[in-house]
Design a protein around this nucleic acid. Structure first.
Length: 586
DNA sequence: CTAGGGTTAG
């Protein structure tokens, strides 16, 4: 900057290149005011800046996050070229101003400027929906720019964000040569859309193609392990993490993997070792502890988070409320809910209300739960009603339950879970005819409950147990073992939950005795056969655990002196010594 | 002078 002043002193004009070098310096140093000074120099009289130089200035303001100033400068540009337009579009995309980004693309086309690969890779990120995406994709193909790796990875990414994995896959498959980022995009696409299997397969393909994983790759791989609850594979990835030191995002993904795989010891250890923790690290631990049934610890971590000066966000508070509702801490929950706006400036959203309905409902305060729903500033959605419905089932409030179920069916008429809960409610109050009616309606509408599935990882291989599918190689042996355990447990006082209509509907079974062979029971027995005694048996399942399996597992864990962890879609059950971390409250 | 990939919930 001294150079600039001295040149001015000698009545010399800097040329474009000098100016752009100066601007680079300002950017590197974060010197906003000096950058503005250069800007004024560029436009002082006698000097006609070329488009190229104004673009450099534009970019500078964008990098300094001064969109307004960039916009002003842009509006006054006499000759806008493709770079000028693209710089603005990229800025809008980054700021998540989707409308503006798209609007500028249209203005650019009207102005007769042809977009290039830079333009497309930027504007794709701002694509607000599938309809626009299809149009964009068509223009890209027409322009021939779809062969550019940047455009491709952007396409893969945005298709995946809209859940269009097939299209993402197609684009990936058409590629002759993919670079690391493109591999990361496609692996991420599957990992982020709960297709962990495919993500891991692609990861192997990437390694076979000769690419070395980087931090983004491993984050995606961890996420795939998280989704599949592959603790052993996740540990393997952990070993490779050392190369990347303290990458915060990667560390956060690691934390989450350990939490979601039900290994809080590992999660706590990793958390303690982190040099830097952000709101996501803390939230991950709060949520992880809460979901695993360690509500008190979750609230303790939340306390430490506040002390450490990290401000909780929307998601943190969901974890806090979840902890309260699953531990029956009604007063704490109320307190956090009421104070989140005042203390942290977070407006409670539908999901927070959902937690509160759950909290009150589980605690049997159904009237208060209804009052809260009526008081919401949102229209109650199906999730809220389903929460209430669940509480009605637990507390055997048939009338309110039926009311809630009707609300859900209005909003979401084909949800199998609702019919199941409704018929369970009727069954609970011995209204068999009504229960049967619900079943018939389901049949007529062709609504089927997904079959119960449980998965267990043994020697880094995933074994699946699916209701009504006995294709597992050792099935005969497993059933034999299971029956032995059942009869031994019966000798110790185990009585299978004979309320089989309830179970029957919950798991989509036909046979009365199939309750005894729910998929998690099979997976647990297989785990006991395959893993040494000191190893924890970890099961992941797609449906919530039923009452009978819960009792069975508690007793089995005690009788065989085993640690068993079952992860259902909502939370975790740690069985040890005849008890479960959920406190029989789920 | 301008562009693509990774973390908490749902």
């Amino acid at each position: 900057m001294n150079a600039l002043t001295s040149m001015q002193h000698h009545h010399l004009w800097a040329d474009s290149l000098t100016y752009s070098e100066l601007i680079k310096c300002c950017l590197a140093r974060g010197a906003v005011e000096q950058a503005r000074l250069v800007h004024r120099h560029v436009f002082s009289d006698g000097y006609q800046p070329k488009t190229f130089l104004i673009n450099v200035l534009l970019n500078m303001y964008v990098k300094f996050d001064l969109l307004e100033e960039a916009r002003k400068l842009f509006d006054h540009m006499p000759d806008k070229n493709v770079v000028s337009w693209t710089t603005m579009i990229a800025a809008f995309s980054n700021a998540n101003l989707k409308d503006k980004a798209l609007h500028f693309l249209i203005l650019m086309l009207r102005d007769g400027v042809t977009p290039n690969m830079f333009t497309y890779s930027s504007v794709l990120r701002a694509c607000p929906g599938l309809h626009n995406l299809t149009q964009l994709h068509c223009s890209i193909i027409k322009s021939g720019l779809d062969s550019d790796v940047f455009v491709r990875s952007a396409l893969i990414d945005i298709y995946s964000k809209w859940g269009e994995l097939q299209n993402a896959q197609l684009i990936f498959n058409e590629m002759v040569t993919a670079d690391l980022v493109v591999w990361n995009s496609i692996i991420g696409a599957f990992a982020q859309n709960s297709e962990g299997d495919e993500a891991l397969t692609l990861f192997l393909g990437m390694k076979r193609a000769g690419f070395d994983a980087n931090h983004a790759t491993l984050t995606n791989v961890l996420r795939a392990c998280t989704g599949l609850a592959l603790l052993e594979s996740g540990r393997q990835v952990h070993v490779h993490l050392l190369k990347f030191g303290q990458d915060l995002i990667l560390q956060n993904a690691l934390l989450d993997m350990y939490c979601k795989c039900g290994s809080l010891e590992d999660a706590n250890r990793a958390f303690a070792r982190m040099a830097e923790k952000d709101v996501i690290s803390w939230s991950t631990m709060v949520i992880g502890l809460a979901q695993n049934g360690f509500s008190r610890e979750a609230l303790e971590v939340f306390g430490k988070m506040k002390t450490s000066g990290i401000k909780p966000n929307y998601i943190t508070m969901l974890g806090v409320l979840f902890a309260c509702s699953h531990a029956g801490l009604v007063e704490d929950g109320r307190h956090y809910f009421q104070s989140m706006q005042k203390l942290f400036g977070i407006d409670p959203g539908t999901e927070h209300y959902g937690c509160m309905v759950d909290l009150l409902g589980r605690a049997g305060k159904l009237d208060e739960a209804v009052k809260l729903i009526n008081k919401m500033r949102f229209k109650p959605d199906a999730v809220i009603w389903r929460t209430l419905l669940g509480a009605c089932r637990v507390h055997r409030n048939t009338d309110l339950g039926v009311y809630a179920a009707k609300q859900i069916l209005n909003l979401d008429p084909n949800n199998a879970g609702t019919y199941v809960l409704l018929s369970n409610i009727y069954a609970n109050s011995q209204r068999w005819d009504d229960a049967e009616e619900v079943r018939k309606t389901m049949e007529q509408k062709g609504i089927k409950k997904e079959p119960g599935c449980s998965w267990i990882e043994v020697n880094k291989h995933l074994h699946a147990f699916i209701m009504g599918d006995d294709s597992h190689q050792q099935m005969d042996e497993i059933i034999r073992e299971l029956n032995q355990y059942i009869s031994r447990l019966k000798g110790l006082g185990y009585v299978p939950d004979t309320d089989f209509i309830l179970q029957d509907l919950e798991e989509g079974e036909e046979k009365e005795d199939s309750l005894l062979h729910h998929s998690e029971k099979l997976a647990i027995v297989f785990g006991m056969m395959s893993l040494t005694k000191e190893k924890t048996i970890r099961i992941r399942k797609n449906l919530r655990i039923c009452g009978d399996c819960h009792i069975f597992t508690k007793l089995l864990a005690k009788m065989e002196n085993r640690n068993i962890v079952i992860r259902d879609p909502i939370r975790y059950h740690h069985f040890q010594n005849g008890l479960c971390s959920c406190g029989d409250y789920w």
